[in-house]
Nucleic acid binder design. Sequence first.
DNA 1: GTTAGCACTCATTAAACGAGAGTGCTAATT
DNA 2: AATTAGCACTCTCGTTTAATGAGTGCTAAC
Lengths: 354, 354
Amino acid sequence: MDLSERQLQILQAIITDYVENAEPVGSRSIAKKYDLGVSPATIRNEMSDLEEMGYLTHPHTSAGRVPSDKAYRLYVNELMKKKNLSAKDKRMINDRLSASRDEFDRTIRHAAELLSEITHLASFAMTPATNEETISFIKLLPVDERTLILMIVSEGGQITNTTLRLTVPYTQEALDLLSKNMTVSYKGRTLDDVLKSEIIHDVGSDIEALSSLKGSVMPGFLRTLEDMLNVNLYMEGMTNIFNLPEYTSIDRARDFMELFARKDWFTQKMLARDNGVVVTIGDENDTMKDCTLITATYHVDGKLVGKIGVIGPTRMKYDEITSIMEYLTNNLSESFRLPGSTGDGNAGDKKQKK
Amino acid sequence: MDLSERQLQILQAIITDYVENAEPVGSRSIAKKYDLGVSPATIRNEMSDLEEMGYLTHPHTSAGRVPSDKAYRLYVNELMKKKNLSAKDKRMINDRLSASRDEFDRTIRHAAELLSEITHLASFAMTPATNEETISFIKLLPVDERTLILMIVSEGGQITNTTLRLTVPYTQEALDLLSKNMTVSYKGRTLDDVLKSEIIHDVGSDIEALSSLKGSVMPGFLRTLEDMLNVNLYMEGMTNIFNLPEYTSIDRARDFMELFARKDWFTQKMLARDNGVVVTIGDENDTMKDCTLITATYHVDGKLVGKIGVIGPTRMKYDEITSIMEYLTNNLSESFRLPGSTGDGNAGDKKQKK
DNA sequence: GTTAGCACTCATTAAACGAGAGTGCTAATT
DNA sequence: AATTAGCACTCTCGTTTAATGAGTGCTAAC
């Protein structure tokens, strides 16, 4: 049961108008503003049909029509045209996103800030999940007699280091040996794997000094692995939503804020989403059924995948926002590419239902 | 112009009642609930006097009285008695605050969480400012031919390290020499000082290889210094305030949230506050004139000073909250004491106007 | 198939009203 | 002289009522 050309035009007009003004739109105003060459009465009839098909709703009898989630879905999948970013937005992204591998986290946070500034919505950005990363080698570097640096290098080139302070002195020999043993034991295994497997015994404890050192180092090692696995989540522009008419009720605003207070939960949810630009509208989300959530992925060295997203009411400028996010993530992926590497990171445009 | 005993009793009763119920309190309910042995009429007369002296206000003619900032000030300075923590709260703090020097930031964040949970207010915690810390030594450790670890150790024992990736290979000699030169140049100077002074030239560039290496390392060095100087600010329990009657207006809530969005600004404000338990009420704050802000300080090794605090409406349980914060900061300072060191960190009880 | 016309619906706003809580004053009481 | 009882007065808050107006849905004409 396809929609006629005119129905699509009317639906598009209603969406455009409602997104703009946040108020139920009536037949008369459609007829006046959008030049469809038909009278309000005709539009009324069509609207009635569209409502029957589930694309529109009625807050109450004598109010205008409001697009349903289904209408937005149709719009995102079929009607929406890619928007060209304004020169201002492009400039903003290019200028302010001085990404560099060194300042990874900082860049990611900047990206989230930028996104919320441009879209006037709440935004977030996540550093890549490193579940699949494998360990390349582990090194223990001496600092002073009771202090050492533990360094973990992943195959993907990620390097993390932590300073450990021991309660007893160590010897250089023990240090070297432990480094070697740990590397042998863990090389090629994923962080996840190493952290979960409790096989910490087999690192070798032949020598007394080594065994003691191992005991001191291991907890730090595990903690560092955990830190490597932890994706960082940055949230920006939370207060933007206070300016939106759909959040003038304190309860709505509270719900919204509380969602973000549970960072870890939210992170999990977002990690589960597909790659590329993903739009989930209203009911398609299992929580926040009156929100739309748009995420996009950026790539590091064309491999690791991080996410960036915006959250707002289902009424939002889908065309603009998806375009902005595509531009932004391409820009990010570009910045995070290893000098030598190739591969375009596949920052595609898959609009898909989750 | 001192207050009579009875006036103090009445004032105390009004504060207690208002703090509890958040509604203007009338003469009749005071007479009924608090056994002062006088009739409502007498209380009315006293209330009238108290109002004239600026301790009470009237939302409108025929409403009950509400304590003014001045009244809260008097209460905090004179009337308030130290409260004993409930066993539950004590246990909570003792159990959950498994502080350890290694996981400094984590512990601080936990403390903020805990504080907001116990007080049902918004809380924050700041890591210590290290402006005054001086550099002990700088070390460059080799990782692979183009990667090295830069380590900065402060006199106070703080250790920070960053991984640097160079575009060109380096030599071991150059590395050692640069480490030595940098240590000589910067040893004993404060982080602040080093960062501000642009005297990066005199690190010595006699050798070609050294000069090139220096050029690559210096930006990373400065960035790391900046990171060391940056105090981290953790905010928790923001959404608690939505449950308070004073924040049912969306505008109020928005203002509140927006304040915290500007983390850096807020950090600056908080750094400027005195040590110990400091309470600033309503107008005493230059922003947030309808809030009370309570901060307390904890100590690291009896020296460095970090802050923890709560924010809420001027109507709050001053006695409980200050007691909780004192207990909590003492606990923190205790945990962050170096094994060898002494000195009680002077976590005093100075209630003072800012 | 389209449009004009018109009755009808329903949210929103303003005004009117009564109830209730609390004060402030005066006069009586201790 | 201090305290209290009594009462008129004020102001908020919730409810009711009425008017307004935007917008639909239907019918009949084009």
